[in-house]
Amino acid sequence: MASKVEKLFEALPGPGSIEDLGLLIDTIRDVFGVLHVVYLAVSLGQSYSVASSPGAGKLRGVDGSWWRHTGKLGAGTYSTEWGERYAEADYARIDPVIEGAIRSFMPIDWKNLDWSTAARKRFLREAIECGIGNQGYTIPIRGPNGQFAVFVINENCNDDQWARFIEEHASQLLVVAHFFHQKVIEVERLFGPTVQPKLSSRETDVLKLIAIGKSRAQVAHELQISENTLRVYLDSARHKLSALNITHAATIAVTKGIITL
């Protein structure tokens, strides 16, 4: 069975603008088969400016929407109504999911959060009215200069089904969450033109050998490293190249002239 990340890679819309990011988030939702997927950049750090226009309001993808309000950027399959309501009411202030994500780097199951205050109960009621599901999983993402974003998967199902879903997909969701954040930075050119990722010679070596079709076992043997060590080197390269998987990483590396075949 192909992993969800592989399926996403095949269906990747190739984002070039913020409208495409709305489409990308739709694709992620469909591939993982969940109710909602949402990305919210709570803080983009110091001295950023966004490339797209308009400067405020919402832009729609196909189903997914993209919104911006007082320095916060978001994309998601939540209804536009909820996105706007969230921004207007500045719910990021009281949202226990945001609070939890700020405190730690560990992904959060919404069940483990404190929903007991009056303001949070009201917030929750409104969320449900706007079609939010009963289960949630939030991945905090941090980057240089105080960048802080969250990536959310939301679904309607019982606790056992949800636990199984998370157990099966936790690693893939981590990869996709960071990938999406990197796409936002890239598409919006938040920190100027994208800089060439810096890969060590070891990373370019392993990527090149994989790209020319050698198996992992062959590469590990050739470089006299274990397959787990190889996995770690490849995964570091994948992350730095903002790629979803190793095939994707190799393609990006060739396109950018980081490796030549």
Binding site: I128, N134, N156
Partner: peptide, 27 residues
Amino acid sequence: QYFPSEARFPAAPRFPADVTVSRLATA
């Protein structure tokens, strides 16, 4: 023990049951 989630909130608050429609189950 995961602290404080397992220490402080033994009965985690839930979304109301009436909104639960299992998509995973139907899938």
